[in-house]
């Protein structure tokens, strides 16, 4: 949907818009900290809703974490679930709206800690929902406490000496774990640390929504994301940390791609 710009007296357009804010985002300013890639993840989801032309059919189940206000940012019907329960609430929404597109947007504390039962069983049932899982290895909203995804040695406000495996166990790899469940048709991990990876993440988000449009089953995209504020870094330093610390520990890749999705954009060659 390129827009072309005409100047008076010129019949030929001078330029065209090659990138523009997606219309599925509301025209508001977000509360996210400068450089927080929650915003990037929002934009990508909105771009996919635009491209697939499903905004008017989509229902968001927002979760508890920094993205708690995501219902103010997407121009779609939305509800706000209790901490960790978004997959259960989305199940209720989807079961009585089987023709609609239902997605949750959850952080790592929400999805990988308090909400493990709900996410595992939604995946196991093959619930026809899409999960956008933003893994920033920390509890952003409550001020930077350790998350189940925090790296070993990572200092947080509740692991001041660094995460210790004896005390707190090892970080959880959710994309791999969810890929094990029979109801999952799409489980991949992407990163938001630079333009190339952002574009790859967008393709994956698109495939995840297509899996739902085709009624195939449960789809999840884990996005390695930054929290400059609680990591105590500048936004660009934070992206470097995603690349140099998170990506090696949480390998990017496709952990499950149902064969019916092969050949789509974002699916492996």
């Amino acid at each position: 949907m390129d827009t072309v710009v005409f100047k008076q007296n010129h019949v030929q357009p001078l330029e065209k818009i090659t990138y523009e804010r997606p219309s599925s985002l509301c025209d508001v300013h977000t509360h996210y900290c400068p450089g927080c890639t929650h915003g990037t993840a929002h934009r990508l989801v909105a771009e996919v809703l635009d491209e697939l032309d499903i905004r008017e059919d989509t229902i968001l189940v927002s979760s508890v974490g920094c993205s708690v206000f995501s219902y103010n940012y997407f121009d779609v019907d939305a509800c706000e679930a209790a901490h960790g329960r978004a997959p259960a609430m989305a199940t209720g929404v989807k079961r009585v709206n089987p023709g609609k597109i239902v997605f949750t947007y959850q952080g790592d504390g929400d999805l990988a800690s308090i909400g493990t039962a709900e996410i595992i069983h939604a995946a196991a049932r093959g619930e026809k929902i899409t999960v956008i899982f933003v893994n920033n290895a920390i509890y952003g909203m409550t001020g930077g406490q350790m998350a189940p995804t925090s790296l070993l040695g990572q200092k947080t406000t509740s692991s001041p000496f660094g995460r210790d495996a004896q005390l707190a166990g090892m970080p959880i790899h959710m994309a791999e774990l969810l890929a094990q469940l029979p109801g999952t048709v799409y489980s991949v991990r992407r990163s938001l640390h630079d333009a190339r990876h952002v574009l790859q993440a967008k393709k994956a988000i698109r495939t995840a929504f297509e899996a739902q449009i085709d009624n195939l089953g449960f789809s999840v995209v884990e996005l390695l994301s930054s929290c400059p504020t609680n990591w105590g870094m500048t936004p660009n330093e934070a992206l470097t940390w995603v690349e140099e610390a998170l990506v090696p520990f949480y390998p990017l890749g496709d952990y499950k791609v149902d064969e019916r999705l092969q050949g789509r954009k974002g699916a492996p060659k």
Partner: peptide, 10 residues
């Protein structure tokens, strides 16, 4: 816990 949150969604 899940049941009541499904009820909430419906």
């Amino acid at each position: 816990v899940a049941a009541i949150n499904m009820v909430y969604g419906a």
